[in-house]
Amino acid sequence: MVRDELQAASDELREAAELVDEETQKRLHEQSEQLAALATRDEDPDHGRLDRHMNVLHELAGQLDGDAEELVRSARESVKEYRKTVPGV
């Protein structure tokens, strides 16, 4: 099962990584890889893990501008939308 919102977030982060400096690229790729793994693993990710990703994406978006910023903000929104479907707190 693929969690579409998480896969979409991963894809957007990869796209954003093409628009930024090398250091930020590494951070975006790391987040992208982690979200892609969460999108396809057997167990659902928990709220805490998703919240940590959302915090990192918020921080990254604050350091960017233009298209890269918009892509990271959109990726964060995708994670947020998926998180609404996770049972629990």
Rank of each mutant, 00 (worst) to 15 (best):
E33L: 13
S74G: 12
E15S: 13
L60R: 04
L35C: 07
V2F: 11
M54W: 10
L28P: 08
Y82D: 00
V72N: 05
A39T: 04
R14L: 14
D11R: 10
T40E: 14
V2L: 11
L71P: 02
V89T: 10
M54H: 11
R73P: 06
S78C: 04
E43N: 15
G48L: 09
R83I: 04
E5G: 02
E81V: 05
A17E: 14
E30N: 14
P87W: 08
R52D: 02
A8S: 09
E70D: 09
G62N: 01
G66P: 06
S32L: 11
Q63C: 02
A37I: 04
D46W: 02
Q63G: 06
A39C: 02
R27N: 10
D11E: 14
L28K: 07
A17S: 15
L64H: 05
L64W: 05
Q7T: 04
G88T: 03
R83G: 03
V20F: 11
D42C: 08
P45Q: 02
R73W: 06
R14I: 10
K84Q: 10
A8H: 06
Y82T: 00
V86C: 00
Q63N: 03
L64R: 02
V2D: 07
M54G: 12
G66H: 04
E33R: 13
S74R: 12
V86Y: 00
E43P: 15
E33I: 10
A75E: 07
H29S: 15
D44S: 05
E43I: 13
E5D: 10
E81P: 04
Q63I: 03
A17W: 12
K26T: 14
A8T: 06
R27A: 13
S78G: 03
A61Q: 04
A75I: 03
A36V: 09
P45F: 00
G88K: 01
L38I: 01
S78A: 08
E22G: 04
H53K: 03
E18P: 14
E23P: 07
H58I: 01
H29T: 15
D67V: 01
T40Y: 09
G66L: 03
E12M: 09
K80P: 02
D42G: 14
A9M: 15
L60D: 07
R27M: 11
D21M: 09
L28M: 12
D67Q: 03
L57V: 08
L38V: 01
Y82C: 00
E15D: 13
G62D: 01
E69Q: 02
Y82S: 01
Q31T: 13
V2A: 07
V72T: 09
E77V: 15
L57I: 09
D4W: 10
K80F: 07
L38D: 02
N55D: 15
A8R: 05
L28Y: 12
R41T: 04
